[in-house]
C-alpha cells in the first residue's frame, strides 16, 4: 500500500532542521548555514512493514515573525519533529510552545523531540534531564542526533513514521 503523509519540522532558527532533512533525504551535510525562507518542502519514501510511506516534509522557517503563517503551514500534518540545539539551551525552551501550537492545529497527531548537534558537546548528555530543564512534557520520544555524523537521524523519522501509522 502506498501512503502519503505530511510532517512538519519545527524549531528555532539554526537548530539544524534543514540539515536534519538533508541528512535524512540526501545523506548530505554542509557546515555552511542557509536560512530557510518561509517553508521548504522535500519528500522521502520509506518502507515500513511492507507498506511504502511517502513523507512530505515541510521544513518551516525558524523565525518567530512568521508564527501566524507557520500556524497555517501546520494544517493537515500527520506528525511533527521538534528540534532543539544542544549547544544553545534557549532553543530547547521554545519546544513546549511549538508543541502546543502543533497540537492546536492537529489534535492527537504524534511528535518526536530531537536534541541536535551532539557533536558540539564535549561529554555525554542526559536527554531526560535536558527535557525536564526545558519544560518539555513527558511522553514524547526524545532523540539525540548529529547531522554531521548522521547519528540517530534515520531513527527519528522511522520512529515518527511508526507513530503516525500506529505501529
Amino acid at each position: 500500500m502506498l501512503i502519503q503523509k505530511k510532517i512538519c519540522l519545527l524549531g528555532d532558527f539554526a537548530v539544524g532542521k534543514t540539515s536534519l532533512i538533508r541528512r535524512f533525504v540526501y545523506n548530505e551535510f554542509s557546515e555552511s548555514y542557509l536560512t530557510t525562507i518561509g517553508v521548504h518542502i522535500t519528500k522521502k519514501e520509506i518502507l515500513l512493514g511492507g507498506d511504502r510511506l511517502v513523507l512530505i516534509i515541510w521544513d518551516l522557517a525558524g523565525n518567530d515573525g512568521f508564527q501566524k503563517t507557520a500556524a497555517s503551514y501546520l494544517a493537515g500534518a500527520a506528525g511533527a519533529i521538534f528540534v532543539g540545539d544542544l549547544s544553545r539551551s534557549e532553543t530547547m525552551s521554545g519546544i513546549p510552545s511549538q508543541m502546543r501550537m502543533f497540537e492546536e492545529s492537529n489534535p492527537g497527531s504524534p511528535g518526536v523531540i530531537v536534541f541536535n548537534k551532539t557533536d558540539l558537546l564535549p561529554g555525554p548528555v542526559n536527554p531526560m534531564q535536558t527535557s525536564r530543564e526545558a519544560g518539555i512534557p513527558e511522553g514524547a520520544p526524545v532523540f539525540l542526533t548529529s547531522c554531521k555524523t548522521g547519528e540517530n537521524v534515520g531513527s527519528v523519522f522511522d520512529s515518527l513514521a511508526g507513530l503516525i501509522l500506529g505501529r
Binding site: Q4, K5, K6, V39, I41, K43, I56, W58, A75, A77
Partner: peptide
C-alpha cells in the same frame, strides 16, 4: 486542502524536472 498532499494529477507532457508532490506542497 489542508496537508497539500497531491491526490491526483495529469499533465499533457512528460513530468517536469520538479517532483509534482513537492510542487503541490509549495
Amino acid at each position: 486542502k489542508k496537508s497539500g498532499i497531491l491526490m491526483a494529477h495529469h499533465s499533457r507532457k512528460a513530468e517536469g524536472e520538479v517532483d509534482r508532490d513537492l510542487v503541490s506542497g509549495m
